[in-house]
Amino acid sequence: MKLGDVEGYDLLTPQQQTILERTYKLHSQAHGLDYKPLYAVEKIKRVQWDKQEKTVNVYYQHEWYHYTSDGCWY
């Protein structure tokens, strides 16, 4: 499965898709081996642009994050 297969990806603009892809890569690399499976692409239920926060919201099976244009997540 690729990020492009995640529900909502096709509704993001190219710029928003870049935010998602770049920040997902950083987020995924930040986790140790024990936690990597929790953040696999397959664990993402959907993504959605948040106009107010100007972030891509990424909804995993167990929690969700805002992904920012500067490569951070919270």
Rank of each mutant, 00 (worst) to 15 (best):
I44T: 06
G71S: 09
S28Q: 10
H66N: 11
Y59V: 08
G71C: 07
E63R: 13
L20H: 01
G71W: 03
L12G: 11
L33M: 15
H62L: 12
A40V: 01
T23W: 07
H62K: 10
G4T: 01
D10A: 13
Q48R: 14
T55S: 15
K51N: 15
L38D: 00
L26V: 09
G71V: 02
T18S: 10
E63L: 12
H31P: 01
S28G: 03
D5E: 09
V6D: 01
C72K: 13
R46M: 15
K45W: 01
Y60K: 05
W64I: 04
K25G: 03
Y39P: 00
G4V: 00
K25Q: 08
Y60F: 15
K2I: 00
I44C: 03
D50A: 13
L26H: 05
Q29C: 02
L3S: 03
H62G: 03
R46Y: 15
D70Q: 14
Q29F: 06
T13C: 11
H31Q: 12
N57K: 06
K25T: 05
G8D: 04
C72L: 13
Y9K: 04
Q48C: 06
Y74G: 09
K36P: 02
M1N: 13
Y9M: 05
V56R: 09
V41E: 10
Q15G: 04
H27D: 06
C72M: 11
H31A: 11
R22D: 06
K51T: 15
Q52L: 10
G4K: 05
K43G: 00
S69A: 14
E63H: 15
V56Q: 10
